[in-house]
Design a protein around this nucleic acid. Structure first.
Length: 205
DNA sequence: CATGGGATTGACT
DNA sequence: GTCAATCCCATGC
């Protein structure tokens, strides 16, 4: 609709959360598409500026070992959260991709803070805004993502992913190798918003 | 049942 | 640059 309906506000309604069909395609494609989308939990949100793709066909992916208690979520329905504990300390947030039965997910690695920033400061206890969400463990702490969110539907909420407020052009996203892994290090499955200050280190060259 | 390894972070040399 | 914290869970005896 081109005009504003009489009696309605001029503000466009927020877009719906992404549905399962968005995630039910090649995981590398989804990883690139998620850069610029918005993750939100309980009013705290940020724009995704960095992702990584993981697929059962390569050994860095948890699903590479097959279906176990740990990987069940990865093999489940697309559009759900896969949250696991890393190094005994951090809860890392992923979005399950591809069709049910295929183990694949996108790791959300960094956000540009958008809303609820006061709560991010309190939860993180850091001095620099750059430090709020510039890493997968950091953003989970800032948003309040916990292991209990494992398997949660990212469309239904409360943990949701929405389309970007303003779509990014493809050339604003740079591909590079993944961080912190020892297996399949050659795959360039990390996607970052070019020159964005909130990307985690090491930054892509 | 014991062991070992992380998709990290922050503190320190 | 180095390194430890800390816990889930896969693997092997």
């Amino acid at each position: 609709m081109a005009g504003t309906t009489p009696g309605s506000t001029a503000i466009t309604a927020p877009p719906e959360a992404l549905d399962a069909s968005f995630y039910e395609r090649p995981v590398v494609e989804v990883a690139r598409a998620l850069v610029g989308c918005v993750v939100e939990l309980g009013g705290v949100s940020g724009v995704i500026v960095e992702t990584e793709a993981y697929h059962e066909s390569e050994p860095a992916c948890h699903a590479h070992v097959g279906l176990t208690a740990r990987t069940a979520t990865l093999f489940g329905a697309p559009g759900r959260a896969y949250v696991y504990r890393s190094y005994g300390i951090h809860a890392l947030l992923n979005a399950v991709c591809e069709e049910e039965g295929v183990g694949a997910a996108v790791l959300i690695r960094a956000l540009e803070p958008l809303t609820g920033i006061e709560r991010m400061w309190r939860r993180r206890g850091v001095r620099e805004e750059r430090e709020l969400c510039s890493g997968p463990g950091k953003l989970s702490q800032a948003l309040g993502v916990e292991l209990a969110h494992n398997g949660a539907d990212l469309q239904e909420g409360p943990l949701t992913v929405r389309r970007p407020p303003r779509p990014r052009a493809p050339d604003e996203i740079v591909a590079s190798t993944r961080i912190g892994i020892t297996k399949a290090p050659e795959l360039r499955w990390r996607f970052c918003a070019r020159d964005n200050a909130y990307v985690s280190s090491p930054r892509p060259r």
